[in-house]
Write a protein that binds this DNA or RNA. Sequence first.
DNA 1: TGCAAGATTGGTAGCGCTAACAAACAGGCT
DNA 2: AGCCTGTTTGTTAGCGCTACCAATCTTGCA
Lengths: 354, 354
Amino acid sequence: MARKVGRRGGNIVTIHDVARHVGVSPMTVSRVINGEKNVREETRAKVMASVEALNYSPNLAARSLATQDSARIGLLYSNPSVAFLSEFLLGILSESSQSGAQLLIESCEGPEGATAALEKMKAAGCDGVILSPPLSDSTRVAKILQDMKMPFVGVAMARPDPGVSCVTIDDFKAAAAMTRRLIELGHRHIGFIKGHPNAYASQIRFEGFSAAMANAGLEVDGNFVGQGYFTYRSGFDAAERLLSHKTRPTAIFASNDDMAAGAVAAAHRLGMEVPDQLTVVGFDDTAMASSVWPELTTVRQPISDMAGLSVRLLLDQIKGHRSGRPFEAVREVRDFSLIERQSSAVVAGPVVSS
Amino acid sequence: MARKVGRRGGNIVTIHDVARHVGVSPMTVSRVINGEKNVREETRAKVMASVEALNYSPNLAARSLATQDSARIGLLYSNPSVAFLSEFLLGILSESSQSGAQLLIESCEGPEGATAALEKMKAAGCDGVILSPPLSDSTRVAKILQDMKMPFVGVAMARPDPGVSCVTIDDFKAAAAMTRRLIELGHRHIGFIKGHPNAYASQIRFEGFSAAMANAGLEVDGNFVGQGYFTYRSGFDAAERLLSHKTRPTAIFASNDDMAAGAVAAAHRLGMEVPDQLTVVGFDDTAMASSVWPELTTVRQPISDMAGLSVRLLLDQIKGHRSGRPFEAVREVRDFSLIERQSSAVVAGPVVSS
DNA sequence: TGCAAGATTGGTAGCGCTAACAAACAGGCT
DNA sequence: AGCCTGTTTGTTAGCGCTACCAATCTTGCA
């Protein structure tokens, strides 16, 4: 039979082709591409060269069939911020397609709606679940998953539950750092817009903010703290309320970019210029931050990386779960950074002495 | 050897298990689950029942290995609107994971940056590419792909290139319908914010708008037409310009939701209420539309469905390409719909007679 | 020098599925 | 009845890869 045209645009290169080309067994090639030790350095080099030369790339379907570790992973999200979701998806996607994992995506309205979605995933044969914030912080959702004996990983969790694997940044430190920066810019009256009450991250961010304020000997004015829900609209509303008081804050720290964008809009509506009359900063550094005007100063959270990492963690965990290895929660903390753009400035007028 | 624990949380059910359970050959089961004809109705029913009972679900890795039609598809996007991208990804994702396709995602800055990204995809062994707008309308990108002999499908193309497969809505009709609706609401002075000049869809939408205006005997005021780039910021800027003229439009039609949101922000900044003093409408019905305040009246484009469909189309095309079947472009046109929310209203004050 | 212990390679089998062919069966015709 | 056509089912082989074990080659050391 004539050689099939096969995949990759008629340019089918298998592990056998590489093996023949180098003059070793397919098994050895397999070892090299899987980075196993106990391959002589010289052999490894020859194989690698051949892989390069023939432009070989492994057939993931065959690999997962052989290793029996193909996994179906579910991604559960409730959608507070589109921009966040989009970065999140990008990260999940590139990682899961690389590892040949199948993805099943479900959305739900808050933790209450999670049960149905999780049931559906279970029925569809999911081996594990990734939880996007704010679901990741819900003890309710965690409980359901644990009862199902379903491995899962939370992303951007703020609650340090020792029994749950997660990928996070240090929200407390991040919020504190941003707050210190605002204080450095001369701001003394700083407003804060909290995120969704379900999201523990919201609370931690607020605590970081409060701590930094206290540390600088500044008071957190109750009038200047607003409740939001991570949506643009909620940031808009909260900012309108904050700015309706007789004395106004000179800066507003919103717990995510969407709300910060909403706050900017509210300020504009009230005739205030940003950042001339009001500094507004956000959190996350999603695409939203650089698409509004003025572009937002914000805390960068490597969402896409974190999401990708969570896939790897989950895959590990699933493998362990199958082989009966006792569960061990992993907690990965990533670095944040402060991104200064045009929405923040030195406080207007004479700096109020503290 | 003891039965392996295998995938799906220890609950491994293969086609053989189903076959044994029903008392037929695995091949018959395969036929049933693939919906082939030439299976007796009675047999089919029994198999289906068994599939249900055992909660069988096929191993996609094995299937694509056997059918040799596992494909690696590239998704190329340049990012005008995050919200759009996010919906787009969702659609691509759920479809491609169902069909077991591998995904490779690359972004690029406009058509100029596409070459490098496409080279990378080719090197990575992609079998086909999906083009998100506005890349889908670039003849430059299409040319590169054709030279590479790489199958591709464009999403939301407006240009009816007969040689290219695509999934679209009728942008002309959609824009005209929205315009008619605005006229119905009493608006006579309607502004328009165009999208990215690269995107043919922008132009078509503008043509639809113009045609509807002309049809109603209304003039399109050059001062009321602004150039945008599909970003929030560009909508903001364009709207500011439109609204700086002595006579202002009573409504602005932006060619996407991001720009409409920007236009709302600009109006607020100028002290105008939406929709009381200005109606603003968008296009796409992305999450952006319902997350800003007031929520946007817009043209709904089923982005996620369209993206999913594009994956299926591409997969078909790849299969055809491999089997040497001559290429045949497919053009799928989906329905749009008008979504009325809070950003539009009957024109303020006495309706200007035409 | 001889030999155990380790390092390095190769051979075999099979992951779960389906293409391709072969066989069995039904019905309609001469 | 005997044959042909079409429908329904089964059999065989193999997709590309890796787990597992066997074979071979080193090396260190008694």
